[in-house]
Write a protein that binds this DNA or RNA. Structure first.
Lengths: 127, 127
DNA sequence: ATTAGTGTCATAATATACTATGACAGTAAA
DNA sequence: TTTACTGTCATAGTATATTATGACACTAAT
């Protein structure tokens, strides 16, 4: 994982871990990497990872067992889906619509996107 | 204009001004607000506006006439279109595709977006 | 020449993100 | 009990964004 310059590292770590959870790479109830371990892996200070984890604990995504570690909370996926969808429709989508307009992006430019969207049309919703 | 917490102010000012130019609210050759004036308007330090303008000068979007002010460069729109399109396809679009996949967004969720895209399909390209 | 605008530069102060490091407490297993 | 993990907290240092402010030079109009 490499970090973007224009976004705080502790937020990027949260986004990355949230993604791991959404993709079922870490399941609810399972332990996430320890603060110290992940800090070494990402070549980042432990306090920075601690900040990401604390934030996710406040958000109800992670739970903490003192002396043992952090675990993915029950219902974390549902919570994340709600949080991320809300953020998408409130922030990402308006910005996107604006760029489509300003940059005059058409169906040809965004063929891949449209294809990806349509492939979700007949998906069976789980959970 | 109000600022987001998660992005540097001088970058947000650049983005905002670039948008004004893309929307023909300030035309090539025209003068942009003076550093001091814009700083007061945005309730920001003049050095911060200066940083935004200097950046845009390096990008070839603004030109400077010492003692007079900053002006929108000839060809600024073309430059901006190129810069922004490149950024869109290199950064925004991949992130968007990822979110569409993770959040399982379908045609119904993004009807407005698809409509907006298709309305650009038969546009006559100017410039 | 004076005045009022421009940008420009230098300095210092503040806030915040991130790092570096040490110390301490809870937990589990040898 | 010792060992080796966990998280937690405190302190200090560094880097950077932003602010605050003053001084100076260029330009145009009076």
């Amino acid at each position: 994982m490499d970090f973007s310059e224009n976004k705080n590292i502790f937020l990027q770590i949260r986004d990355w871990l949230a993604d791991q959870i959404m993709q079922d790479k870490i399941l609810p109830g399972e332990k996430v990497p320890s603060v110290r371990e992940l800090a070494v892996d990402l070549e980042v200070n432990r306090n920075t990872v601690m900040r990401s984890y604390s934030l996710m604990e406040e958000e109800g995504i992670l739970e903490n067992k003192r002396g043992i570690g952090f675990f993915v909370a029950t219902g974390a996926k549902r919570s994340l889906l709600k949080i991320q969808k809300q953020a998408f429709f409130a922030q990402d989508l308006p910005e996107l619509l604006h760029k489509v307009e300003v940059l005059q992006l058409n169906s040809e430019d965004l063929a891949l996107l449209i294809q990806s969207i349509q492939s979700n049309d007949h998906e069976i919703k789980h959970d």
